[in-house]
Amino acid sequence: MDLTVVAYVIYLLISVALTIWVARTLSRNGRVFLADVLHGNEKLADAVNHLLVVGFYLVNLGFVTLYLKNSDTVADARGLFDALSVKVGVVLLVLGVMHLGNVYVLNRIRRRGLMDREQTPPVPPQGWTAPGTGPWTAPTAKA
């Protein structure tokens, strides 16, 4: 068997396994974060989490597939490791950038939600008092 084909198979196995592992880890650990971002709405957090995982798979597996082709033929074991190290390294960098992008966007959404919560008073106003009628007003001088 040609070593280039062996490099392709090993690259696909490693890249797909890494993508699945990262997606599952992000899904499992990101659920709590999403629930906080979405103000405790568990059903919405699960739905958004699932959509993020599907998008993560599509983008990363699409990239892995597009990046599969190797311009050079692999002649020996050293060439096999050289090709694999570059390809798997790039896939890891793309996975990391995707993860940081997701965390950045979700953190921005979370911050906006926290700012909205801080601007809303904990108790709605109870009424309106006209100026000068409260117990804190100074008594007026009698002539």
Rank of each mutant, 00 (worst) to 15 (best):
I20L: 13
I20S: 00
V22I: 06
V22T: 01
A23C: 02
T25S: 08
T25C: 03
S27W: 00
S27K: 05
G30N: 00
G30K: 01
R31T: 10
R31C: 01
R31Y: 13
V32R: 11
F33L: 11
D36M: 09
V37R: 01
N41C: 03
E42V: 11
A45L: 08
A47G: 04
A47I: 04
V48Y: 06
V48C: 05
N49R: 03
N49F: 07
H50T: 14
L51S: 11
V53T: 13
V54A: 10
G55Q: 07
F56E: 10
F56W: 06
Y57F: 14
Y57W: 08
L58Y: 11
N60K: 06
G62D: 10
V64H: 01
V64Y: 03
V64S: 11
T65D: 07
T65E: 09
L66P: 02
L66A: 09
Y67L: 02
L68P: 11
L68F: 12
K69N: 15
K69H: 13
K69T: 10
K69F: 14
S71A: 13
S71E: 15
D72C: 00
V74G: 08
V74H: 07
A75L: 14
A75I: 13
A77L: 15
A77P: 05
G79T: 06
G79M: 01
L80W: 05
F81S: 02
F81W: 14
D82V: 07
L84E: 09
S85G: 06
V86D: 11
K87N: 10
V88S: 04
V88Y: 00
V88G: 01
V88H: 03
V88I: 12
G89Q: 08
G89K: 04
V91R: 06
V91F: 12
L92S: 09
L93E: 06
V94E: 05
L95N: 07
L95T: 00
L95F: 04
V97N: 03
H99M: 10
G101H: 02
N102I: 15
V103K: 04
V103G: 03
Y104K: 06
L106P: 01
L106H: 01
N107E: 14
I109W: 09
R111M: 08
R112W: 11
L114V: 12
L114Y: 09
M115G: 06
D116W: 04
Q119M: 13
T120V: 12
T120W: 02
P122W: 00
P124K: 09
P124I: 01
P124W: 03
P125I: 14
Q126Y: 12
Q126F: 13
G127N: 07
T129L: 15
A130C: 02
P131D: 15
G132F: 09
T133W: 13
T133G: 06
G134T: 15
